Amino acid sequence: MSDPFKSLHDAMNQFAAERDWDQFHSPKNLAMALTVEAAELQECFQWLTEAQAKDLDEQQLAAVRDEIADVQLYLIRLAGKLEVDIEAACWAKMKKNADKYPADLVKGSAKKYTHYQD
C-alpha cells in the first residue's frame, strides 16, 4: 500500500484487532458497509439546493467531513484486505478515464464516454 494510506491502513488494522472485528471485515461486508457510508454522505446533501450544497454551515460541514472519512476508511480497509494499492489504482484509473474522455472531444459535456465512440 502506498505511503499516503499506509499509516491509516496500519491504524485500521490495529483498531479492528483490538475489537476482534476482523472476523466481520470480509471484502463483501466492507463493500456493503462502504455503500452505507456513501449513502450517509449523500444524506448530508439531501433536499439542499445546489447553492446550499456549496455553502454548508459548520455543523453541516462537520457531518460531511465525518462521512467522507468513514468512506475513505472503509476503502482503505477493503483495499488492504484485497491487497490493492489505492494510489496506484487511482493513477491507473485516471489514465483509463483520460483515454475514455479525450479533452478535445468531451470538453464542456457531461455525456458518457460511449456517446463519443466511433
Rank of each mutant, 00 (worst) to 15 (best):
A69G: 15
A69K: 13
A69M: 12
A69E: 09
D70H: 15
D70I: 08
D70G: 12
D70Y: 06
D70P: 03
D70K: 07
D70W: 07
V71G: 02
V71W: 02
V71R: 04
V71N: 08
V71H: 05
V71F: 03
Q72N: 07
Q72E: 10
Q72A: 14
Q72M: 15
L73N: 12
L73H: 04
L73R: 14
Y74Q: 13
Y74C: 13
Y74S: 08
Y74F: 15
Y74E: 05
L75N: 05
R77Q: 14
R77M: 08
R77L: 11
R77F: 07
R77K: 13
L78P: 01
L78D: 04
L78A: 06
A79Y: 00
A79H: 02
A79S: 13
A79I: 00
A79W: 02
A79Q: 01
A79K: 01
G80H: 01
K81H: 08
K81T: 05
K81M: 06
K81D: 00
K81Y: 01
L82A: 00
L82G: 04
L82C: 10
E83F: 03
E83R: 13
E83I: 00
E83C: 08
V84G: 00
V84K: 01
V84S: 01
V84P: 00
V84C: 06
D85T: 07
D85L: 02
D85R: 11
D85K: 04
I86Q: 06
I86W: 03
I86M: 15
I86C: 09
E87V: 07
E87S: 11
E87Y: 14
E87N: 09
E87C: 00
A88H: 05
A88K: 14
A89E: 10
A89I: 03
A89V: 09
A89Q: 13
A89S: 15
A89R: 11
C90G: 06
W91Q: 12
W91L: 15
W91E: 11
A92R: 13
A92V: 00
A92D: 15
A92Y: 03
K93R: 15
K93Y: 10
K93E: 09
M94E: 10
M94K: 14
M94N: 14
K95D: 12
K95R: 14
K95M: 04
K95I: 05
K96F: 07
K96I: 10
K96Q: 15
N97E: 05
N97S: 10
N97D: 09
N97I: 10
N97K: 12
A98I: 09
A98S: 09
A98L: 11
A98P: 01
A98N: 13
A98V: 04
D99R: 11
D99W: 04
D99H: 11
D99Y: 01
K100C: 03
K100I: 02
K100G: 02
Y101M: 05
P102D: 01
P102K: 08
A103W: 04
A103N: 02
D104T: 08
D104P: 00
D104V: 08
D104A: 11
L105T: 08
L105N: 08
L105P: 03
L105Y: 05
